[in-house]
Design a protein around this nucleic acid. Structure first.
Lengths: 118, 118
DNA sequence: CCACTTGAGTAGGAAGACTATGTATGTAGA
DNA sequence: TCTACATACATAGTCTTCCTACTCAAGTGG
């Protein structure tokens, strides 16, 4: 039995910008295959804990990417002996990564322009 | 009567990152009061048309900000003689702008870290 | 007169994130 | 051994915010 003590009105506010999660996941997988849980850990680690990847965001994102054939998965047993679903980037995923990276670069640059120039 | 010819599956994909619109609006208003329509034009202009602000995004955003008392509005008649709803930043809006700017800086930096470091 | 731009707005729906759950197993420690 | 914790995957429900599509209206230029 779980009870929420506080479901506050003041939202804790986003850890991520909507839409960037897929990009980050693709990028991490570009550096080599990984299972879901460790993708999240990796993003948090590299971002020095600025970004927090919730499981409720991560797994749906992975399933989305899989549906779009941008990643593919297989169950594997690693050192930990626990079976884990290992994801790897497909060719289409690689292409998508490049596209989304380019998009991120230009959009974030544009936002910075507005923020600086008024 | 209007009919959509094509409501395509392949989305045209975002002009903005979700959540950044409010920040951009606050920033533009920080440079001086403006009416809604001209806020959109200004963002597009400064961003060199990389960012497109849809009216269906803009006006709801302004109403949200007004509800939160981050901006306040008054109907005014400018040179164009057409009445327009002019928005200005409130003190709370200014504070919010600073907070969100800081958040943008750190989050975008974190994303860039992940993108570069793998 | 007509088309275009300016200007404000709403309704409806899709997307994606978060919270809150649930399940299960391996591992370290008391 | 029991217990707590980290690992690991997953889904339901809700919320927020965006976009598309549309309406209405008043100036402006041809």
């Amino acid at each position: 039995m779980y009870v929420d003590v506080l479901t506050m009105a003041g939202k804790s506010k986003n850890d991520l910008l909507s839409g960037t999660l897929d990009l980050l996941v693709l990028r991490v997988l570009d550096a080599g295959p990984r299972h879901g849980y460790s993708i999240a850990r990796r993003i948090e680690q590299i971002s020095e804990d600025v970004l927090a990847v919730q499981q409720g965001s991560l797994y749906p994102a992975l399933h989305r990417l899989e549906d779009k054939a941008l990643v593919e998965a297989s169950w594997e047993i690693g050192e930990s002996k626990k079976p884990a679903k290992v994801y790897r980037l497909t060719k289409a995923g690689k292409a998508q990564l490049e596209k989304e990276t380019q998009s991120w670069v230009s959009v974030s640059a544009a936002i910075n322009l507005v923020l600086s120039k008024a």
